[in-house]
Amino acid sequence: MKLREIAYARSGDKGDTANICVFPYKDDDWDYLRENLTSERVKAFFARTVTGAVDRYEFPRLKGLNFVLHGALGGAYSASLMVDSQAKSYQSFILDMDI
């Protein structure tokens, strides 16, 4: 199953760091998401572009996860050569993960 089937996301940047928050559509999927969408799996999914660590934080009441991807954009600000140097499109990419 693709993550897109059960969750939605939003992404952005701070310098060379990207963050992606992910929320399940249904509260019932929260435990499953929490167990399966680990920082290790996200790191592996982005392995070829993210050079640093991936941290994961939780919103227990909103039922959401926030991933912080370090070294995600090939440099900060105009040093980044990426078309989307602000990581806005990452929110759609992570939803393509198989979980």
């Binding site: 939605y8 963050n19 934080y57």
Partner: peptide
């Protein structure tokens, strides 16, 4: 709630 939750988590690090 969905659009607002996306905003809460936008461009943040540790939410704590």
């Amino acid at each position: 709630a969905q659009t607002v939750k996306c905003r809460i988590g936008y461009e943040i690090g540790d939410p704590r």
